[in-house]
């Protein structure tokens, strides 16, 4: 059974539609990136799935419980890192965690606190108030708080937002370390590098779900697979030779490169190289053109997300 199943989830605030008929399924243990610009409705989606606010229509199951009729069970089984850490700045780090361990009804409270503080390198600072922590440390403490009760589903809302690059790396490493725990992670972000590094699949979202798949599949769907042949002197003759190779769909010239769109490069590349060499080309190297997730993001959200 999937860890998250949302069906036609919609949320309106007066006349404004924040989330419009979102349907998505997330498998247990999967890390999914929820990408979209500011104001896209990511936080509203997380709040609905975490049982904080109710949908206007549609429904969802999270960790096996419905968000409308079994909301307390949902809250007990999800961890939530909110956009800001929301720590009690004057209370010691361990006491911050102790409160939430009790609120979640955890057993072995002190053992859990120690385990998570040690895991994120904060055990030595357990008696210090988070007000004295760096931003990265505060965010790690907030993640530890979200994980205290070992939730099967973890929602992270912009975990590296507002952090300097060093702190962001620390937090990303902490999130990466959670991938092996078998936990479902729903990561809201507009940091595409972060999504590409951490997520199995990404969902592009702007009020409506625009696309959801692995970053590679999205790239392939959008741009196809492209191969660059570095030939030193890319002229019209070589362009024509390459275009004539079976399996090559489209070829463009780009400085000293010929960039070909090929459905199955593993099968087509040897023939293409042979043809180019036979035509007198100095093939220096051949490589697949990697489109960034950023290009996918801009292509999809720019072109198709005209809806409010």
């Amino acid at each position: 059974m999937n860890a998250i199943i949302a069906h036609e989830l919609t949320r309106r605030f007066d006349d404004r539609v924040a989330v419009d008929h979102l349907s998505i399924e997330v498998a247990p243990g999967e890390v999914i990136g929820f990408l979209g610009p500011n104001g896209a409705g990511k936080t509203t989606t997380v709040r609905m799935l975490a049982g904080l606010i109710a949908p206007t229509s549609g429904t969802a199951e999270v960790a096996g419980f419905r968000i409308d009729t079994q909301v307390v069970h949902v809250r007990a089984r999800v961890g939530l890192l909110t956009e800001t850490p929301g720590l009690y700045d004057t209370l010691p780090a361990a006491q911050n965690l102790r409160l939430f361990a009790h609120l979640y009804g955890c057993d072995d409270v002190e053992g859990r606190i120690r385990r998570w503080l040690e895991r994120f390198g904060l055990w030595e600072r357990r008696d210090d108030p988070p007000g004295s922590f760096s931003k990265g440390m505060r965010q790690k403490l907030a993640i530890a708080r979200a994980l205290l009760h070992d939730p099967p589903v973890l929602f992270l809302d912009e975990p590296t937002s507002g952090l300097d690059p060093e702190a962001a790396t620390v937090v990303r490493d902490a999130i990466a370390s959670l991938r092996n725990d078998g936990r479902t992670i729903f990561l809201c972000t507009h940091n595409l590098t972060e999504a590409e590094r951490l997520c199995d699949r990404v969902a592009l979202f702007k009020t409506r779900l625009i696309a959801v798949d692995t970053p590679r599949a999205l790239r392939d769907q959008l741009f196809g697979r492209q191969v660059a042949f570095h030939v030193g002197r890319a002229d019209d003759a070589l362009l024509a030779v390459l275009r004539a190779v079976p399996g090559v769909i489209e070829v463009a010239r780009n400085d000293s490169r010929l960039v070909a769109r090929i459905d199955d490069p593993e099968a087509t590349n040897p023939a293409a190289v042979r043809a180019l060499v036979a035509a007198g080309a100095d093939v220096r190297f051949v490589g697949e053109v990697r489109h960034s997730l950023e290009e996918v993001y801009h292509e999809l959200l720019g072109a198709r997300a005209g809806t409010p």
Binding site: L52, A76, L80, F100, L103
Partner: peptide, 14 residues
Amino acid sequence: NAKTLEPLLATPIT
């Protein structure tokens, strides 16, 4: 104001 309410409300507390 301290942004601590949302994590609190996200727990099973009624």
